[in-house]
Design a protein around this nucleic acid. Sequence first.
RNA 1: GUGAGAGUAGCUCAGUCGGUAGAGCGCCGGAUUGUGGUUCCGGUGGUCGCGGGUUCGAUCCCCGUCUCUCACCCCA
Length: 419
Amino acid sequence: MITSVKGMRDLLPPETRVWNRLEETTRAVFSLYGYDEIRTPVLEPTELFVRSVGEASDIVHKEMYSFTDRGGREVSLRPENTASVARAFVEHGMPQAGGVKKLYYVGPQYRYERPQKGRYREFRQIGAEVLGAADPATDAELLVMLFDLLGRLGFTGLSVSLNSVGSEESRPVYVEALREYLLAHEEKMGEDDRRRLRENPLRVLDTKDRSLAEVLAGAPRVLDHLDPASRTHHEELLALLDAERIPYLVEPRLVRGLDYYTRTVFEVTAEGLGAQNALLGGGRYDRLVSDLGGPRTPGIGFAIGEDRLVDVLPEGFRRAAIDGFSPVALVAIEPEDRAAALALAGELRRAGVAVDFDPAGKGPGAGLKAASSKGCRTAVLVGRRERESGVAVVKDLVERSQKEVPLADLPHVLKGETA
RNA sequence: GUGAGAGUAGCUCAGUCGGUAGAGCGCCGGAUUGUGGUUCCGGUGGUCGCGGGUUCGAUCCCCGUCUCUCACCCCA
């Protein structure tokens, strides 16, 4: 048997109904905020991610699906989507067009990691990016939109962890201060944290080693090392979030994995996701566009782990999505009734009624059984007697009741427009 | 890349102290020749993940490998 590739999975019905409704809701909300969709290729020049995500990052040096194509180009499956959006932004001259560009995307991403709960080699992200706006009000509105979406999906009680990592000038100063502090406590660290200390001291702040709690509590804080402009940005953002009643928690030890973040960084975690509890993450990236060869353009965005989101989606939203698919089952009693049933199916569909007709059905028994096991609520039966009197039997599969309905009235009755 | 656990029927699992396997659910048929969720009866069901080794004999023991699950790393 041929199976799917490790870490990649099939999404099957009825689960796909949940994904579809989730994406429909997302598009609707993003549109309300003036965001337009962008679709970028799954395959990009490897160089794009080396320059944006960072050569030293784990994502680039051990998690990319990279290969040389037949034309000798070094290409990679995208491990995230922000870099592609920034690339497209520059490539299509959007900076020269001026103004603010608000874009969203929905699509698969690829990282060659060991799969575990909430982590797959092919996973989907829903993201939004604002390019060309540096004001904290932009950060605030992005988060307002995010919580609007989460609220419409039925989430309650989520809050965003928020921090600022400063500007590209102040950040290295802080990192140096942190490094010096941590070096003094290196003997208390495990192997992993010592490695982090050498490669990226910020990551030590993320450690799961509880014995370092005391050390970290005494560590210098990014927020105390912000340059004045970043400090103002951060404070203004908090004030705007207060005004908009966005539930946030300033988390001084929050650092994000991607190198390109500046100033605002944030993430939302959720219960029930196992060790991979980050539901979404994002931040400001004021130097990404210029790093990719474009003019200096501020940007901010977030990416939601769609697979994880589906995992913890509130039951009410799930139910509505699954129950929302319920075509009328059309059952032909005898083989001679199939032609009439097929014609009726056509009429009903033209009238906007979703009809599931199984032409190979073996009579009413099997037909009704299949219909109820599929979750259909209504069945329409057509047999010789009905054909002769110009009616159809409409059966409520839940109530187990049925009535004869003249064919002409069928569309109205089935659409609930009973009169 | 590291560690632990698991792979037996379509699904969820049991089992064989080594003698080529069972249940429940599902599916098909019948009781009910044009009416489904209950009940009863009958039937369909498996290279026991794959390869090798030990053995008279392996689904069981050993080795390897693949896949899944969880954790580390990292991140959505």
